[in-house]
Design a protein around this nucleic acid. Sequence first.
DNA 1: TGACGTCAAGATCCG
DNA 2: CGGATCTTGACGTCA
Length: 438
Amino acid sequence: MRVSSERSPDRFRPFFGRQERRMSIGYACLALAVPGTSIKKCLIRNADGTRLRDLISRNLRALETMVDYNRESGIRLYRISSDIIPFASSPVNDVPWETEYREQLRTIGDKIRAAGMRVSMHPGQYTVLNSPNPETFDNAVRELLYHARFLDALHVGLTHKIILHVGGVYGDKKQAAQRFAYRYAALDERIRGRLVIENDDKCYHVEDVLSLGKSLMIPVVFDNLHHAANPPGVDSTDADWVAACRETWKAGDGPQKIHYSQEDPLKRRGAHSATIAADEFLLYMNGLPPEKPDIMLEVKDKNISALKCILCTEDRGIGALEKEWGCYKYLVLEHSQKAYQSIRQLLKDKAQYPALAFYSLVEEALAREPDVGSAVNAANHVWGYFKDIATATQKERFAGLMRDYAVGSVSLARVKRSLYALAEAYPREYLLKSYYFV
DNA sequence: TGACGTCAAGATCCG
DNA sequence: CGGATCTTGACGTCA
């Protein structure tokens, strides 16, 4: 099979069929351009039983919708948001959610297992197990227990992990690491069965984490961007560190996992990029040992990049690319009419699977600022869905918005919000799923 | 004391 | 009044 023409060097070539195992690529917490998947929360002062129950049932429905979407899209790795049960580890939440939502949790877990999906959870940077502050430590334990209870309530096995950073240094890294060690040893078995540790960008580099992982038998997640920001003194390649981390994953832990992200060139050092650049991703992947780990992407465009990376490493046929094109087309049109035409040409040959070429064209188009002409053209294409069914008021309103946009008195975002509202009012599934509105 | 990171909730402004 | 835009929250560490 061919991915792209001769202009694609070997090192960018995907590795279809070269793996012993089908690796999984996934995204964290929220699915973009998937209606009904937003996770809601509230301020702690408003968190009474009624409000919390409302949020929990909403959020579980959203989670189920995301799991459905993942299954339909063939995304087999997914991180569940810690906000799914708001204030779960705080005394303000006394809702017995495990029993009240037992059936729903069970159903979601069944779907996850049936789809062969692997889920994880990742308490934030404020869950600090090795803190010298007893209250912080206590909070961390309750937070970890909540995560373990949630995954237990889904009835998913111990390959579905909880990812944690080691914590703070407090002026003495050795002592702080020891405190992590004995506190880990005392944790509830429900937590220890799932806990894995990750290198961070400030305190504990991959060598520190590996040393803890080895002595405590905790699997280690390698994060490439944290590693770039906080490398150990030892000079070694990412591939070697990934291989070293792999040794910490025992049979019952499931396949090794890593976190992968790219730096946003326009932002502060260490900031996650808007999207994953496909060629750079393939270059990185091809540098890793042949047996690939599961890869959790940390990137702004979430599921969109996950699908991109999956389709660039797994031949799912031209139909999968055509489906993606359906989501991208108006967004591409907005940025570049030339790229729009090129991609249409590219996808005409149904015998090919030009995944990398497709995404390269998309990335190239999206990297350029849309000019007013292209943006107007794209908006009019979308308006085409409504121009015959809209009311007189809606027609007037849209025409007015377009006039105002053309003279610069209204933002493009405003125009798009208005079009999205129409897609909701006259339900147009196809448009509601479009990346045009992301 | 504020930066760090994250994103929606909540608050306020505007026409 | 509704929509747009600005600010806060919730967490802990460290400079």
